[in-house]
Amino acid sequence: MRRATVVAAAGCGLAMLAAVSCTPPPAPPLAPKALPSPASSPVLAPSPAPSSPGTPSPSSSPVTPSPAPSTPEAPSTSGPAAAVGEGKVIPADTPLLEAVRRHPEAGSQSDDSIIVIHREPAIGAGEFAWMPDDRTYCLAVVREGRADLTCKPLPTFWARLGIRLVTKGGPYPGGTGTRTVYFAVVDGGHGPYHYTGSATPVPDAGPVRDATAVFASGRTLSLLTYERPTADVPPRGGPDICSRDTAVCFPALDAYVG
Rank of each mutant, 00 (worst) to 15 (best):
M1C: 04
V7Y: 11
A10Q: 03
G11V: 06
G11Y: 04
G13W: 13
M16H: 02
L17M: 14
C22D: 11
P24E: 15
P26R: 05
A27V: 09
P28G: 11
K33Y: 01
S37T: 01
P38H: 05
A39V: 04
A39G: 03
S40C: 02
V43L: 08
L44Y: 05
L44W: 08
P48N: 11
A49L: 11
A49K: 15
S51I: 01
P53G: 07
P53H: 05
S59A: 14
S60Q: 11
S60E: 13
S61A: 14
P62L: 06
V63C: 10
V63H: 10
S66C: 09
A68P: 10
S70W: 00
P72F: 06
E73H: 06
P75K: 00
G79N: 02
P80N: 08
A81G: 14
A83N: 12
A83R: 02
A83E: 12
E86P: 03
E86M: 11
K88L: 13
D93P: 09
A99E: 02
A99L: 06
P104K: 08
P104Y: 09
G107T: 04
S108F: 07
D112W: 00
S113N: 13
I117V: 15
R119Q: 09
P121F: 04
G126F: 07
E127G: 12
A129F: 09
W130P: 07
W130Q: 03
W130E: 08
M131D: 05
P132I: 02
D133M: 06
Y137W: 14
V141L: 04
E144V: 02
D148C: 02
T150W: 14
T150E: 15
C151D: 15
K152E: 15
L154A: 08
L154Y: 12
P155M: 04
T156L: 07
F157C: 04
W158I: 00
L161K: 11
L161Y: 09
L161Q: 10
R164N: 10
T167W: 01
G169H: 05
G169F: 07
G169M: 02
Y172I: 01
P173M: 00
G174Y: 01
G175C: 01
T176E: 03
T176M: 08
T176R: 12
T180L: 11
Y182D: 14
F183L: 05
A184H: 12
V185S: 14
D187G: 13
G191E: 15
Y195N: 06
G197I: 01
S198F: 03
V202M: 08
D204Y: 04
G206V: 02
P207M: 03
V208T: 06
R209A: 14
A213D: 12
A213V: 01
A213Y: 11
R219S: 00
R219F: 00
L221V: 00
L223F: 07
L224I: 03
Y226T: 04
E227P: 06
T230S: 15
A231H: 08
V233G: 10
P234E: 11
P234H: 05
P235Y: 09
D240N: 15
V248Q: 12
C249W: 07
Y256M: 00
